[in-house]
Amino acid sequence: MGHTPRRRGDQGLIALLTAGAMGTGIWLIGHGAQAQAPPPQPSADQGFAAGPRHPGPSAAPTPPPPPMPASRPLRVRIPSVGVDAPLMRLGLDESGSLATPPQEDKNLAGWYADGSTPGTTGTSLIAGHVDNRSGPAVFYNLGSLKKNHKVEVVRADGRTAVFSVDAVEVYDGADFPDKKVYAPASRPELRLITCGGGFNKARQEYLGNVVVFGHLTGTKREPAPRAGDG
């Protein structure tokens, strides 16, 4: 995953990323065609160009909740695709690229700790692998998300930030729209990112990235742990 941090005026650190290391695809070469289909890719009607998808013609718009105070994110949950994974902090590696979660842990995602905390004003980033050498990983089904699906980020303050999906798009790695994906936002927004866009067997790499765009539409309290839990 290539990464060049840049500063733009007083808007803070903007991560301009071209993600290319969120999955190996090697398992596809060996036995994926027989044992498992390639990861799903978003259809055109889930992109921004198709326009928004509303719950129904009679549904009144719900006012967005106020931005949340900063608090460390602990887990990401996406009920519609069965994701419930812990989050680790992601920083920059020695080359200045965004570090990625360990590939050997299939159910682990990471949040960019130098960006906005999920739920606060700004653009928050969560990245995860689509696969590893043994098969599908945490964000394998990211491309099957639909508009209005929910993404929940559990935080250390006991509150959960609930995001609604605005669009799911796939981009070629050579033409990744950094500003569209990572530009600062005036409201709490979220980006989920993984590899996608087809797979080049000769180079053993994915051709691009799947990106999910969402914004904060709700908050809730996590239930207190019961005595004896843990």
Rank of each mutant, 00 (worst) to 15 (best):
P65M: 06
P65Y: 01
P65S: 01
P65G: 04
P66W: 10
P66K: 10
P66F: 08
P66H: 12
P66E: 09
P66Y: 09
P66L: 10
P66M: 11
P67T: 06
P67W: 12
P67H: 09
P67I: 10
P67L: 08
P67M: 07
M68K: 05
M68R: 08
M68Q: 14
M68D: 02
M68H: 07
M68W: 04
M68N: 04
M68E: 05
P69S: 09
P69T: 11
A70M: 01
A70Q: 05
A70W: 00
S71E: 03
S71Y: 03
S71R: 05
S71V: 02
S71T: 02
S71H: 01
R72S: 12
R72D: 11
R72A: 12
R72M: 12
R72E: 15
P73Q: 04
P73G: 07
P73N: 08
P73M: 05
L74T: 13
L74W: 03
L74I: 11
L74D: 05
L74Q: 09
L74N: 05
R75F: 12
R75M: 06
V76R: 00
V76N: 00
R77L: 09
R77T: 14
R77V: 15
R77G: 03
I78W: 03
I78N: 04
I78S: 04
I78A: 07
P79L: 15
P79D: 13
P79G: 13
S80F: 04
S80V: 12
S80T: 15
V81P: 03
V81T: 10
V81Q: 07
V81G: 00
V81H: 04
V81C: 05
V81W: 00
V81K: 04
V81S: 00
V81D: 02
G82E: 08
G82S: 13
G82A: 12
G82N: 10
G82K: 13
G82L: 14
V83F: 02
V83I: 15
V83A: 01
V83E: 04
V83D: 01
V83W: 00
D84N: 15
D84C: 07
D84E: 10
D84G: 09
D84Q: 11
D84H: 14
D84L: 14
A85E: 01
A85D: 01
P86F: 09
P86S: 13
P86I: 08
P86G: 13
P86T: 06
P86L: 12
P86D: 06
L87D: 09
L87T: 10
L87K: 08
L87G: 05
L87Y: 09
L87W: 07
M88S: 03
M88W: 02
M88A: 07
R89F: 00
R89Y: 02
R89M: 15
R89S: 15
R89C: 07
R89P: 01
R89K: 15
L90M: 10
L90I: 06
L90F: 04
L90V: 03
L90A: 06
L90P: 03
G91P: 05
G91C: 07
L92Y: 14
L92G: 04
L92M: 15
L92R: 14
D93F: 11
D93W: 12
D93G: 09
D93K: 12
D93E: 14
D93Y: 10
E94I: 11
E94N: 14
E94H: 15
E94D: 15
E94G: 13
S95N: 15
S95K: 14
G96V: 06
G96W: 06
G96L: 09
G96P: 02
G96H: 04
